[in-house]
């Protein structure tokens, strides 16, 4: 009995003094980044279409890690300028088919190691954004895009912005959490055009 009581009191004591350290998203040094990259290289393996090159950091990832996703203006500006240059605009219209766009926005598939690379991937837009008011199962990580064209206009500038943003979100916000769908080869030119139509075709459910 006495032994039992003792065990209970030590457990209570442990629980009382155990409080986790406060964690902040802090800046990293170049040496810390090198350490993590070496660990990732050692502890990950290519699988299916997910090759090890995916772990090689580019300038955007490196600067965002150095600055805890909040780089000084000058750094952010030069990153954004370089990213803007990666965007390849189609030679013809930027507007595809909004019905295809809806499917791409709904699909969260693509680019994972368990998926066949030949199968078309999606944009996973609804994972983070509200788009059509009819689709109530939407995430909230990104801003709501409901009525995107209706509120921002349907013109060529807005089409160009939407295409560019989907192609490479880092051209507009260096450490955005949105993937670079075109730049990473995750969505094709036609798929991005279909998404632009989903956002900017006046007939699209997004604008109803």
């Amino acid at each position: 009995m006495k032994r039992h009581l003792l065990a209970v009191s030590t457990a209570a004591l442990l629980a009382a003094c155990a409080s986790a350290p406060v964690v902040e998203h802090s800046k990293m040094t170049g040496a810390e980044i090198a350490q993590i990259d070496a660990v990732l290289k050692r502890d990950f393996r290519a699988k299916g279409q997910a090759k090890m090159t995916r772990l090689e950091p580019d300038a955007v990832q490196r600067e965002c890690n150095l600055h805890a996703d909040n780089p000084p203006d000058s750094v952010a500006r030069s990153l954004q300028e370089a990213q803007l240059k990666t965007i390849k605009y189609p030679s013809d219209s930027l507007l595809g088919d909004w019905k295809n766009g809806r499917k791409i926005a709904e699909s969260g598939r693509g680019m994972q190691w368990n998926e066949k690379p030949a199968n078309p991937g999606g944009g996973g837009c609804y994972n983070c954004h509200q788009l059509s008011p009819q689709q109530t199962s939407h995430g909230t990580l990104g801003p709501s895009l409901k009525g995107f064209g209706k509120t921002r206009g349907y013109g060529p500038d807005m089409q160009r912005y939407a295409y560019g943003k989907i192609y490479n979100a880092k051209a507009y916000s260096a450490c955005s959490h949105m993937p670079r769908f075109g730049h990473s080869g995750s969505l094709s030119e036609q798929q991005i055009k279909d998404l632009v139509a989903y956002l900017l075709d006046p007939k699209s459910p997004v604008n109803q």
């Binding site: 990293m28 810390e32 993590i36 995916r54 965002c64 996703d69 990473s184 995750s186």
Partner: peptide, 16 residues
């Protein structure tokens, strides 16, 4: 410490 840094580390095809 490694886990803490990894939690915030941007990497992979989609920069997450």
């Amino acid at each position: 410490e490694l886990g803490r840094k990894l939690y915030f580390y941007r990497t992979g095809l989609w920069d997450f």
